[in-house]
Amino acid sequence: MQIIEYIDRDLAAIGVADTLASGLKKALSIQERVSLAVPGGTTPGPIFDVLSAAVLDWDRVTIMLTDERWVPEDHARSNAALIRSRLMQGPAAKAHFLPFYRDGKTAHAAAPELSESLKAQMPLSMVVLGMGNDMHTASLFPGARGLSQALHPDAPALCPIDAESQPDVRITLSAAALNGALEKHLIIFGQDKRDALERAMGQPPEQAPIAAVIQGGTVHWAA
Rank of each mutant, 00 (worst) to 15 (best):
G41Q: 09
A144R: 02
D10A: 14
A223N: 15
H220K: 12
L114A: 14
D57V: 07
E183P: 05
D103E: 15
C159Q: 00
R170M: 04
E32A: 11
R86V: 13
T43D: 13
A111K: 10
Q89N: 13
M1Y: 13
L129V: 03
H75C: 05
Q89V: 15
M201L: 12
L20S: 04
V128D: 01
A138M: 02
I188T: 08
T43M: 09
L87M: 07
P123G: 06
R145K: 14
M1P: 10
A157Y: 02
I187S: 10
G23Y: 01
A95N: 12
A12V: 11
L173P: 00
V50H: 14
K26H: 07
A211F: 00
S165H: 04
K105N: 11
S148E: 13
E68T: 08
V127M: 03
L28T: 02
I30L: 12
R199T: 09
Q203G: 07
D134F: 07
Q149N: 13
L28H: 03
E206T: 02
V169P: 06
Q215H: 14
A163N: 02
P160G: 05
G132C: 09
A150H: 00
P44T: 06
A175T: 00
P123F: 05
L158T: 02
S22N: 14
L147Q: 01
T137F: 01
M122G: 06
A150R: 00
E5N: 15
T66W: 09
D103P: 08
E183G: 05
V128C: 03
R9G: 14
L24F: 02
Q2G: 05
G146N: 02
H136D: 00
R199E: 13
V16I: 09
A111G: 14
T43F: 05
E68G: 10
I30H: 09
L178R: 00
I188Y: 08
M88R: 08
G180F: 03
I47R: 06
R170Q: 03
A157K: 02
V213Y: 01
T43L: 09
G130N: 06
D8L: 13
I7P: 10
G217F: 07
P156D: 04
G143H: 05
Q121P: 12
Y101W: 15
D103G: 11
N179V: 02
